[in-house]
Simulated assay, not measured.
Amino acid sequence: MKFPARRGLLAIPILLALPAPLHAQRGEVAAALLQFEEAVTWEAVSPEWRRIRPGWVERVSRAGSPAEVAAHMRQLEENMGWQAVQPSWRQRRPGWVAEAQAARSPAENARLLLELEEVTLWSAVAGSWRNTRPGWVAQLRSVAAGGK
């Protein structure tokens, strides 16, 4: 599987430059969302994703609230194909979407993002994700538990 050099995490430095309280509230989940999207292969997303991705990255980087981060997370999920996720996602997805629409905290977003990543197939992410994933999961679990 080829993984084109198409994605630079330019948004991460923007998030890290935010003032600490604002960054603590939403920056970690937004950064994790960008990192996860970075690992998702082109084959796993809709053809339109190439066109909308640059604006999406910018909007995630500037998201001002957990509700905005959740909306961007839903947009990524909507652009991932069924071939990118476990078959069980067809049953769970409506509830996940409803929870994401109602999400108002970084902890809720972290739980939802962890769930999305968990149902994503290994074939839908870059091979490097296997090494990145453990720290990514640990960080989001901390946020989900209310640790941040």
Rank of each mutant, 00 (worst) to 15 (best):
Glu99His: 05
Ala102Ile: 01
Gly64Arg: 14
Gly55Lys: 14
Glu68Pro: 01
Gly81Asn: 03
Arg130Tyr: 08
Lys2Asp: 15
Arg92Ser: 08
Trp56Ile: 12
Arg62Cys: 04
Pro54Asp: 12
Met73Cys: 06
Ala100Gly: 00
Arg59Ser: 14
Ser142Gln: 13
Ala71Gly: 09
Arg90Val: 09
Ala20Lys: 11
Pro13Ser: 04
Ala103Asn: 04
Asn79Ser: 07
Pro94Asn: 03
Trp42Arg: 12
Trp42Tyr: 08
Gly27His: 03
Leu16Ser: 13
Trp82Gln: 05
Ala5Met: 10
Gly55Ser: 13
His72Lys: 05
Pro134Lys: 04
Ala30Val: 04
Trp96Ala: 03
Gln86Cys: 07
Met73Gly: 13
Phe3Cys: 01
Pro87Gln: 09
Trp129Phe: 12
Thr41Val: 11
Val125Asp: 01
Leu33Trp: 13
Glu99Val: 01
Phe36Pro: 05
Trp42Cys: 04
Glu108Asn: 02
Gly95His: 06
Arg92Leu: 11
Leu18His: 10
Ala39Met: 14
Ala144Leu: 02
Gln25Ala: 13
Arg26Lys: 07
Leu15Pro: 06
Leu22Asp: 12
Glu115Asp: 13
Ser65Tyr: 08
Glu43Leu: 13
Trp96Cys: 03
Glu117Pro: 04
Ser105Cys: 08
Pro94Lys: 08
Ala84Trp: 01
Val85Gln: 13
Ser105Thr: 15
Gln91Asn: 12
Asn131Ala: 12
Pro106Ile: 03
Ser128Asp: 06
Glu115Arg: 07
Ala20Tyr: 05
Lys2Tyr: 11
Trp49Asn: 02
Ala103Ile: 09
Val137Ile: 14
Arg130Thr: 15
Leu121Tyr: 00
Gly95Thr: 11
Pro66Ile: 04
Gly135Leu: 07
Arg6Trp: 15
Ser142Glu: 14
Gly135Ala: 13
Glu118Leu: 07
Ala70Thr: 02
Val60Met: 09
Arg74Cys: 09
Leu140Phe: 08
Pro47Val: 13
Gln139Val: 08
Phe36Ala: 02
